[in-house]
Amino acid sequence: MRPGAAKKAHLSRPMRGRAPLLDGMVVPTLIVLALIIGYPVVSTLMLSVQQYDLINDAAPSYVGMRNFSDIASDQIFWTAVKNTLIYTFGTVFVAAFLGAAMALMLENLNGPFGNAARAIVVSPWAVPFVVVAFLFRFIYMQKGGVLNAVLMHLGIIEAPIPWLNDSDLALPAIIVANIWTTTPFFFLLVASSLSGIPDAVLESARVDRAGTWATLYHIKLPYMRNPLVIGSLLMIIANFNDFAKVWVMTQGGPGFSTTTLVVYVYRMAFENFRLGYASALGVIWLILLLVTAALYFRLLRGRD
C-alpha cells in the first residue's frame, strides 16, 4: 500500500484520529482473531523450524532452516506449486470469462425466461463442494460415467476417455468441475456491476451510435474491472485453499498430476505426521499468497 493513497483517503474524510489498535471497537475482534488465528499462525511459524514427527515419541527438535532447504529440493513440492497455480488461475480466469459472458448475454433479457435463466445459471454456487466433487467424479467415470456414455452415443468419441485417470487430463477435468461451481460467482458479480451503470451513460453511447463491442469495451468494461479484480482475488484465495474437490476426485493422482499444495500439506501432516515439514510448507504457502495479494492490491490502486 502506497502511503500516498492512504493519505488521500485519509484527507477526504472527517478527521477522527485514533490509533487502530487502541480503538475499543476493534479490540473484541482482534482478541478473538489473536486467539483462534494468531496463536495457530505463530505456532506454525515455530514448528516450521523444528522436526516434529507425531508418529514417534521424540519431542520436537530445532533444525533451523533444514525443512526449507529440504523443500527446495522436493520435486513433489514444485509439482504441487505448479498444479496449484494452474488450478487456481485456470479456474478463476475461465470462470471470470464465462461468468462475464453469461452476464452480458442475460443483461437485456427480461421477463420470466430471463429471470428463470438467471436463477438457473447461479444455482451451482449453492452446491456444496463435497457434492460437486462426488457428482463430477461420478460423471467422469471411465466406464459407467455419463459423460463418456453420452459422447459415445453421439459418436463424438470411439472409446471411453479416462478423464480422471490420465496424467494430462485429470487436472483439467477437475478444473472444469471447479469452473462449474465458480462461474455463478462471477456471473452475479458482473451482473450487479452492469446494473450499476447509470442509464444516462448507456443512452449517450447509443446516441453516439457506438457498436455493441465498442459499448462493451469503452463503457461496460471499466465498470466491470474493479469488481472483477476484487472478486478474482477472493476466488484465488478460496481456490488456493480448496481441498474437497481434489481430495474426493483423485486424492492428488494419478501420479502426482493433481497434487495441489493443500493436498500435499494434508498428506504430510495427517498421513505422514511430519508436522514440522508441513508447517514449513504452510509458511511458504502464506508467502506465495501474500505476494499474489500484494500484486492485486497494486493492480487495484493503479486505477487511482
Binding site: V41, F240, N241, V265, A269, S279, W285, L289
Partner: peptide
C-alpha cells in the same frame, strides 16, 4: 488466506 490445513494441528 492462511491455509486452513496448516491451522488444523494447532
Amino acid at each position: 488466506m492462511f491455509p486452513m490445513v496448516v491451522l488444523l494441528a494447532p
